[in-house]
């Protein structure tokens, strides 16, 4: 991994670090409330690096469910990472070896993936891991702080800081959608589907993690059918 790429990634990852700190602060506080120790909360954050999956995992632990339930919960909620990893692998290209891929996989969260994709064709594993390490620092330290001093930061400030992450997604998607019409269509399709899964009775029983996967697959498949990407264009990406 080139040092320059890694440092550029660390710099780009700063806003994720701040956003993660506030979200994981809530996770740390909740873990303590569920009867875990500070070290257990920190270990979960250090080894999982995922918000929804960890919160769901806490619920499984608190309810004392069987191990199989933990596996199934994580599979459903985190299945979007499989899609992201597939897209990330294609972007990294054949030059990225197994070691680099295994390292990048560990840091493949929603936000790190978003920043990696925003980097475009020149994305390297070094950049990706750079973003990931800074993000992980925010995530782990936020968990520790939340576990030790859960009542320090008022809820409203924490929630407002959590919106930073959504702000990042918007900052990445909007310019792409503006540039390329089929991407705009895929975004609109995904938004409509996502609203259906959130609000239509029956459909809203589907877990958030699975709903995101379904929205993504349906919207991307529809656009791939109607607006297949030109051969050369893909070759460059």
């Amino acid at each position: 991994m080139r040092r320059k790429e890694f440092l550029a990634g660390m710099k780009a990852g700063m806003p994720v670090c701040v956003g993660y700190f506030s979200v994981s602060f809530g996770f740390g506080a909740m873990a303590i409330a569920q009867g875990l120790t500070v070290w257990q909360a920190v270990l979960i954050s250090a080894t999982n690096l995922t918000s929804a999956g960890q919160f769901a995992g806490l619920t499984v632990i608190a309810s004392g469910a069987i191990i199989l339930e933990m596996i199934l919960t994580q599979l459903v909620i985190n299945s979007r990472y499989a899609l992201m990893s597939l897209a990330l692998g294609q972007r990294l290209g054949p030059n990225a070896g197994t070691g680099k891929r295994l390292a990048a996989a560990f840091f493949n969260t929603d936000e790190v993936f978003a920043l990696g994709m925003a980097r475009g064709k020149q994305l390297t594993a070094g950049f990706f891991v750079g973003v990931g390490i800074v993000a992980a620092l925010g995530w782990i330290s936020g968990t520790a702080m939340g576990a030790v001093a859960g009542s320090l930061l008022p809820e409203s400030v924490r929630m407002a800081l959590g919106v930073m992450l959504y702000g990042m997604f918007i900052a990445i998607v909007v310019p792409q959608a503006r540039e390329e019409k089929p991407i705009l269509i895929s975004v609109v399709l995904a938004l409509v589907l996502s609203c259906l899964f959130a609000w239509v009775p029956g459909l809203n029983l589907i877990s958030d993690g699975l709903a995101i996967v379904l929205c993504t697959v349906l919207a991307a498949a529809a656009c791939a059918l109607f607006f297949p990407v030109e051969e050369e264009e893909v070759a460059q990406k």
């Binding site: 294609q90 197994t98 978003a114 995101i212 991307a220």
Partner: peptide, 29 residues
């Protein structure tokens, strides 16, 4: 998925699909 699919995907539909995945996924989230 990162380690098992190392080679560039040749299938045009799959390539296009993966091209649209990031924006669609971020929007849905």
């Amino acid at each position: 998925p990162l380690t098992l699919f190392k080679k560039p995907i040749r299938n045009r539909f799959l390539k296009s699909f993966l091209h649209y995945v990031p924006a669609a996924c971020l929007a849905a989230m």
